[in-house]
Design a protein around this nucleic acid. Structure first.
Lengths: 161, 161
DNA sequence: CCTTGACCTAAAGCTAGGTTTAGAAATTAG
DNA sequence: CTAATTTCTAAACCTAGCTTTAGGTCAAGG
């Protein structure tokens, strides 16, 4: 069974093939490589060649994005895998716990916001610094700088007309 | 009680004063004006002057942003208020229901994702097209285009070494 | 009057996560 | 061999939601 392509230069997947297998755009894969989420070697002509395991690695990236992890966070998770291979079922269990935690936290934030809102419906607190929505519960995942505080209008409730 | 400032040219709030009362940056208020979330008249020197009701209007904007409404959506909500005044307690009750619905929906999406994840922990399904995370449950609020499908690797499970 | 400080506009810059474009080189199909 | 794909790089562009910068003007205090 020793065929002539058995030594030297493993074939690998071209970027287009990887794109087809994952459903990602070619440009996205190049971008992910630039961000250190996958790596590729180059063939004689300078074209990228990927390993088959990168299909799973990119699938992992796509799932992590469903959980709204940023590229930087995904890179961290992938770095927690020994020597850059795709996650095995055992790795997957471990990483899933992190997804779980992130997800639970985001759900908790939204539920708190919902409860605060429930407390506010009908209380007319739109003008109250003591409103439950005041100065707490940052945007779903504190991305961005965001405003600094809410509701400066402490008196003069009805001055709109 | 007829004082001399009683006719002509109501004073209004300068943009800096409004910024202080709301906690927003001056540049943010100008931006919101450009986006039609507030409006101002100009004094003799061409400077913006706002009504006191705009404090509450902007507070409303800030709360809506906590709920991850976009500028366009917030503009819609504000347009649903008669003649561009700040929301009254009655308006607030009505609009709160919309926040509620948006929030419930987002929580539901995350919970589905969490359930799918639970079903996946330990099942080694990272390579399975039949994985619960496959091809469903778009990112928390389907912003952005997003990838088209997941997990192209239907066979060759352990080819990473 | 003179000096701060607040304000003005327009345009450019920023983050995130990519996509699009342009022009050139490599690979594949016939 | 030739034509059609695919791939390459670098840089520009895109959305969202603002901020920063540059160069001036307005308003208020002493």
């Amino acid at each position: 069974m020793s065929e002539n392509r058995s030594l030297r230069q493993k074939p690998g997947l071209a970027i287009g093939a990887l794109a087809e297998r994952t459903g990602l755009a070619v440009s996205a894969i190049r971008y992910y490589e630039s961000q250190g989420l996958v790596s590729a070697w180059r063939n004689a002509g300078g074209q990228r060649r990927f390993e088959r395991a990168d299909i799973r690695r990119l699938s992992f990236v796509m799932i992590a994005q469903k959980f709204d992890f940023t590229i930087a966070e995904i890179r961290e998770l992938l770095n927690s895998l020994p020597d850059g291979r795709a996650p095995t079922p055992a790795d997957w269990r471990r990483i899933s716990e992190q997804f779980r935690a992130a997800l639970d936290q985001r759900i908790a934030v939204l539920e708190t916001l919902r409860d605060d809102l429930d407390g506010c419906i009908g209380c007319g607190c739109l003008s109250l610094p003591k409103c439950a929505l005041y100065n707490k519960g940052d945007r779903a995942a504190q991305k961005g700088t965001g405003p600094r505080y809410l509701m400066g209008d402490s008196s003069e409730i009805d001055d709109q007309g």
